[in-house]
Nucleic acid binder design. Structure first.
Lengths: 383, 383
DNA sequence: GACATTTACGAAGGAGTGCTTCATTAGTAG
DNA sequence: CTACTAATGAAGCACTCCTTCGTAAATGTC
């Protein structure tokens, strides 16, 4: 009831315009009649709405469908190409960039390797190179881009400053949004990477369609993100999801079981250690299997805390270790079944390494939608 | 975007009617001009809206305000008396009932003592007596009541069946909503008591105005409820808030520190034991103080798990022990400060024993609002 | 007590939006 | 070539909201 506002006639038209856009986005090219039927409006009204949207550049006509009875109907679709979005995943070891249209369809993707201790100026330069090469790959320029959405590790303030980051030393206190704004002449939004990954899973991954989701980032670094009522939860101070910081949740050090297993040969790089243990467990090695069991023990504590508190529909396991879901999921499920009142679906991520950058694109889409669907922001002219 | 729907002109009128109702409810009697200004509509339009609402019985006229300049303006207000709501708190030891008008203003309140092991038929009879006496006290009959909202202990399914309840033996598996429907000829809604208490705190208690709240029920029995984005979170299977079921959260047995303290005289009833320890701690007894410290240690673990995961604006301490907030809050705050990334406000409940029954009334109001503000349910004629 | 001032009320006219209806048009099927 | 089908385009109607202006009912001033 808080924000319920009265309205003008123009408000009604705006609502109907947005409904039309939303319907077209969701269902590809549609005829006027189909559009009218789906939105509940009459054909003549819908015609006027669509004409206005065409004038504004939000909708375009496509060739009519072949082979029906009667006069072929004109078809319209959302003009996804009227603007573009860039997603960024700024990680410790890689910077990924993706270019997408307004539908969130990814057109190009690039990667720039970096190191956690790469100095800040070099890191920013790498971000610039990643975006530039991505734009070149997609045949676009930065002027075509409406929103850049960046995801990175750490606690990020609502304004896009990095409040705290353990994984990238130079990152803590850095005004990422501010610097990105200087680099790119468009809207900038910044978000925690786990939350972006969760969003991607909810939009197009393992949790598609679920409205209450717990996303667990499992890897050398642990993280969590939650989706409540279809919305990614940020928290009052944008610090939600940091349950791994609590020792009793047994998440922070859980990966040690896999990374310091006694069967790992000396000289194995830390990045490969957990993979070695899991491969051995998959092959039936009893020591490795025991390590996996202990890992699952720890994981189940923090996870069931979240499940008991939130009662989500789905728990999605993402992050580096989710590639080993075949080994990790069964023992985790078994423990959760014991600990939880209502057992949620437990699924592995289906998006892999591009999870965060995909989520960044989805965040940019959502950001745009939010602006579109906010009463005060009328349809901006595009084209 | 999911439920955005196009609309008719009548939809616009409906929207404006609801806006008017909402504004009137929030702000007491208003003149037409004031109402028009607040809703953004023009005076003549608002006049027509108000006239329609008067015809339907949702709004009534009040005597004009005295002592202004110019012609005195008619004043209108929400007709809170056009219907009534009953709230129920069905606990182990007490059944409380409250009668309220549609604004949620409580008109009468009664209590019926029971025992946890009271047989089911007697318990239901006690519920009937509590409601009847409450209605009599308020001078109303059950025909005046639109909604009965009941809160009780346990995990409650969306349909109002009690899925599981440890505190009241006969309760598990009982179809509470179904039986209440047979008893009362009006709408019935059933909800978990902690969630109702949280709602009351958010609507009119310690967390008024906050949209992200963790409510911790502290007492001999522990419970939690969360409010996200202004809405009480139920969870996919209505089992949210049960974090106390996890041993590692250290909530389930935390009260033992207070109830089994060595200084408690033999023969003290279990209901008074914790109070004795706290009173001793308040007086400076070192053994009692140590018990309080250990209690705070345990409480802080589960609480910080919730705070780290959700990053709420406010944590409200409710339940029986919240009367002792002067002793409990300082050590709890101190520990949370160490454990949490962003320290939330930690406050004690301001509603006391009537917390749940008040929340039940607020739930009934919200239920009504929801139906009112749902496009498919047009304004029902009242009066 | 007459008058100005202030504020609210009520009616009239206009603009915008959506709906229904019907003749027209552009295809396919026989 | 004709019949049928489905979309199109234009006309007329209904509803909601807006602006404007004259009227009504109080208070304050001379």
């Amino acid at each position: 009831m808080a924000t319920l506002r009265g309205g003008d006639l123009s408000r009604l038209r705006q609502l109907n315009s947005l409904t039309a856009i939303g319907t077209l986005r969701g269902a590809g090219p549609l005829t006027l009649s189909a559009l009218a039927e789906r939105t509940g409006l009459s054909r003549p009204s819908m015609k006027e709405v669509v004409e206005e949207l065409m004038r504004l550049g939000w909708v375009e006509e496509t060739p009519p469908a072949q082979g029906g009875m009667g006069r072929p109907a004109r078809r319209y679709r959302f003009r996804a190409g009227s603007g573009h979005l860039v997603g960024l995943d700024i990680g410790g070891h890689n910077i990924r960039a993706a270019l997408a249209d307004l539908d969130g369809v990814i057109l190009a993707e690039t990667r720039q390797p970096v190191q956690p201790d790469t100095p800040l100026p070099e890191r920013l330069a790498a971000i610039g190179r990643a975006v530039a090469s991505c734009l070149a790959l997609g045949g676009k320029t930065i002027e075509d881009v409406w929103v850049v959405a960046a995801g990175t590790i750490g606690v990020i303030t609502p304004e896009g400053r990095i409040f705290y980051c353990a994984a990238i030393p130079a990152w803590t206190g850095f005004d990422l949004a501010g610097h990105l704004r200087e680099m790119f002449p468009c809207e900038i939004v910044v978000e925690n990477d786990s939350r972006l990954a969760a969003r991607a899973e909810a939009v197009r991954g393992a949790a598609r369609g679920a409205s209450d989701v717990v996303f667990l980032h499992v890897g050398r670094r642990m993280g969590a993100a939650i989706i409540i009522d279809g919305k990614v939860h940020r928290g009052f101070g944008a610090a939600a999801g940091e349950i791994a910081m609590l020792p009793q949740a047994q998440l922070f050090d859980a990966s040690e079981h896999l990374q310091n297993c006694s069967i790992i040969p000396e000289g194995t790089s830390p990045a490969d250690a957990a993979g070695y243990t899991i491969a051995a467990a998959r092959a039936g090695d009893p020591v490795a299997l025991a390590a996996v069991e202990r890992y699952a023990d720890d994981l189940a504590v923090g996870t069931s805390a979240m499940v008991l508190l939130l009662d989500p529909q789905v728990v999605v396991l993402g992050g580096g270790f989710s590639r080993s879901a075949d080994v990790l999921l069964p023992p985790l499920r078994e423990r959760l079944k014991r600990l939880c009142i209502r057992m949620p679906d437990v699924r592995a991520s289906t998006l892999g390494d591009e999870c965060v950058v995909t989520g960044a694109i989805d965040y940019a889409v959502a950001h745009l939608d939010h602006r579109l669907f906010t009463p005060d922001a009328p349809l901006p002219t595009s084209r």
